[in-house]
């Protein structure tokens, strides 16, 4: 049976992990390769690397990082963060990334999704969508690291992205991100029902029960989190044991 996936997300800058990862027994928590290997051993199903480098060496450092990670890691990983051209995507895939996620560039020019899917196949093209709830408009899509409201409806944009050839939607609720109050079940469920491709839920995870909720009540295919894993608040193995007890198929 296909299992629900648990995905730790690592923020990287200039080839190093950021956001104060604290891990017992990990000598260098800033080393993305060591951290990735540790998560893989603990039972992570995939990893996401979000690159927040803003210098003009960005592409070279990210390609080098992808190569180093791919050399060591025997589970799939996605790379995202400021990726905007076919050439960027090609360089990352050729160096060992399994999937590449695009966000602002796809909203700026949606045809990019079609071009990437045609060239590389839908299976490796993830569209990351950042949504925030507004009264009375509902869930709207933001770009540029969550600073700019596009005014676009979240469900409608995710549906368009999937129709254009995205193989997966990574949906982050900015309204929930950092709250640890749980995933945004309503918008995650609405997007999951609207698209025929897998949906990764992101933003708001604070407890094991939150993952049960997003899988049982919002039909997410995967759950992504950062800080609760990095700070050891929830171990991946104990999370998966909890999910299995709740009747959710997981890889243990």
């Amino acid at each position: 049976m296909l299992t629900k996936r648990i995905i730790p997300c690592l923020d990287v800058k200039d080839g190093r992990t950021v956001k104060g990862v604290r891990f017992e027994g990990l000598r260098d928590a800033g080393d993305p390769v060591a951290l990735a290997a540790r998560y893989a051993r603990e039972g992570a199903d995939e990893l996401v690397f979000l690159d927040i480098t803003a210098t003009n060496q960005k592409r070279a450092t990210l390609v080098a990082l992808v190569r180093d990670v791919a050399r060591e890691l025997d589970i799939p990983f996605t790379v995202g963060g400021g990726i905007g051209t076919v050439a960027d995507v090609e360089a990352l895939l050729m160096n060992g990334a399994d999937k590449v996620s695009i966000n602002s560039a796809a909203l700026h020019r949606p045809e990019l999704i079609d071009e990437l899917a045609r060239r590389f196949g839908s299976q490796c093209i993830v569209v990351a969508a950042d949504a925030r709830f507004h009264e009375p408009e509902g869930w709207q899509i933001y770009t540029r690291a969550g600073t700019h409201n596009t005014g676009r409806d979240a469900v409608q944009w995710c549906r368009e992205a999937a129709e254009r050839g995205a193989g997966e939607i990574l949906l982050t609720s900015m309204s929930n991100d950092g709250t640890k109050d749980g995933f945004a079940l309503d918008i995650t469920g609405a997007v999951s029902r609207a698209v025929s491709v897998p949906v990764v839920a992101s933003g708001g995870a604070g407890s094991k029960q939150h993952f049960t909720d997003v899988f049982q009540n919002a039909h997410a295919d995967a759950g992504l989190a950062a800080s609760i894993f990095h700070f050891g608040e929830i171990g991946i193995r104990e999370l998966k044991e909890h999910l299995r007890q709740d009747g959710i198929p997981v890889r243990l």
């Binding site: 049976m1 296909l2 299992t3 996936r5 025929s196 491709v197 295919d221 890889r251």
Partner: peptide
């Protein structure tokens, strides 16, 4: 086939 509970691509870990 496109089925409500079975997303395409078939993506993830299976036995």
């Amino acid at each position: 086939p496109a089925l409500p509970e079975y997303k395409v691509p078939h993506m993830g870990w299976n036995t």
